[in-house]
């Protein structure tokens, strides 16, 4: 069963180039990808993640509101008793915020230079370490 990822765009920020490229690259690499579209609230994102039964929520945020958005998502997951969906992020996130986000339980933050292979490796690693104990076949590999 392939890893299933929700690519999410929270808040008012409309910068969706990165989110769309990541969505496409992960799909080409064999993962199952759901893209939320723009202007999602943390509630909408968590609801979609639960309904779609994803392994990973990948949050793309370039507006600077990450220290508002990530805590909300983590709190909502906790309130709903979800502890096996890994939350990762990317976008414009200043380095000194990364440790703070990790303390909140965000598993990985990818910067703008991350390659497809970095993303795949990172996602596989966090799912293996923190994700659901599902039997998976056919590890994802990047498209040529």
């Amino acid at each position: 069963m392939p890893i299933k990822v929700l690519v999410a765009k929270p808040g008012l920020d409309g910068h969706d180039r990165g989110a769309k490229i990541v969505a496409r690259a992960l799909r080409d690499a064999g993962m199952e990808v759901v893209y939320t579209g723009l202007h999602q609230t943390p509630e909408m994102i968590v609801t979609a993640a639960v309904q779609e039964d994803v392994d990973v929520i990948g949050v793309s945020i370039l507006s600077g509101a990450h220290m508002t958005v990530f805590p909300r998502i983590m709190k909502l997951l906790e309130e709903r008793g979800v502890d096996d969906i890994c939350v990762i992020g990317g976008g414009v996130i200043q380095e000194n915020d990364v440790p703070k986000l990790k303390v909140l339980g965000v598993r990985e933050i990818f910067d703008a230079d991350a390659t497809t292979q970095n993303l795949i490796d990172g996602i596989e690693r966090v799912v293996a370490e923190f994700g659901r104990a599902r039997k998976r076949t056919g590890a994802a590999t990047p498209a040529s």
Binding site: G11, L12, T41, S63, G64, A65, M67, T68, V69
Partner: peptide, 10 residues
Amino acid sequence: PRSEGEVGRE
């Protein structure tokens, strides 16, 4: 409420 975290930010 949608403005939270974004007021005067960028």
